[in-house]
Design a protein around this nucleic acid. Sequence first.
DNA 1: AAGAAATCATTCACAATCAGAATGATTCAC
DNA 2: GTGAATCATTCTGATTGTGAATGATTTCTT
Lengths: 153, 153
Amino acid sequence: MSDVNGAMADDASGLTSTVVFRLGTLGTVVTDRFTREIEGLGLKPKHVGLMAALSLAAVASQQELAARMGVAPSLMVSLADYLEGLGAVQRVRDPRDRRRQVLTLTEEGQGLLDRCTSIARTLDEEVVAGLTEEQRTALDEALRVMANRTGLP
Amino acid sequence: MSDVNGAMADDASGLTSTVVFRLGTLGTVVTDRFTREIEGLGLKPKHVGLMAALSLAAVASQQELAARMGVAPSLMVSLADYLEGLGAVQRVRDPRDRRRQVLTLTEEGQGLLDRCTSIARTLDEEVVAGLTEEQRTALDEALRVMANRTGLP
DNA sequence: AAGAAATCATTCACAATCAGAATGATTCAC
DNA sequence: GTGAATCATTCTGATTGTGAATGATTTCTT
């Protein structure tokens, strides 16, 4: 059983008590679960990440998107290729700067993204079950703060 | 600026507002950061995960450890090989059952793990900066509950 | 206005990371 | 005691991602 003071019996000061370790572990577990769920849609997490980025940014060059997602430009090309093949994304040369390839989310892409969102919401219920309402809002707020804080120098 | 009611301006009900997505994203960012930090020790996250498991379990067979970490037995062999090469881990045939290879953390391994713990603590300070004391304990509690809850069926 | 340097997308080759099948040793069930 | 099961190991292969080389276009410098 866990101690209310925040110390674990076994490992009072070990690695497994750090936020970094626990956040990392939980993140991978949850992501793996999500990965399995979206498999049926023919999507991988990075595809979904790209669509999510597009749904926020409306339009953006591949370079910008690569930087935002923290991946190499060459990978962005593959991701865009694949999503374009699905009809989820549209690639258009920017007339202002014809080097740039501008991506936009299509209707179909938005539909796919919506289904991913729905899957994520269902998973949310599982993950967050066992948390009180206050804990949920606290978690929500904490995630927001930490997300802003990361892009860590 | 973010709304106190918990709704974001852009993406009131989108994927990026789900716990799953944000937890996954934050987890990978933090893990990537940690990965870079332990590079100097010649370690990868899975090596650290294995050592952490050993420090909790004292002794365990490779099969058990593989199951606990959610990796294939063949990968466990590689990880153990590597850590044994560093002198961080000791491999001993279980005399009770000579099929089993029992792993234990050496003094040297404990030393390495301690350095990883110290690195994680330093990162913790960065990650958690900007959270109030109440938010930190709330996060701590939420992570504990969710971690118990995961191993999700 | 011309040439040099930078930027973007793309392709290709390659490294890293895992999982899965095949193999051999040992133990367990009956 | 024999056959099935379990464990560790090796090897092959799929997947995922980076980085270097290339070509097209733009921007900077003079």
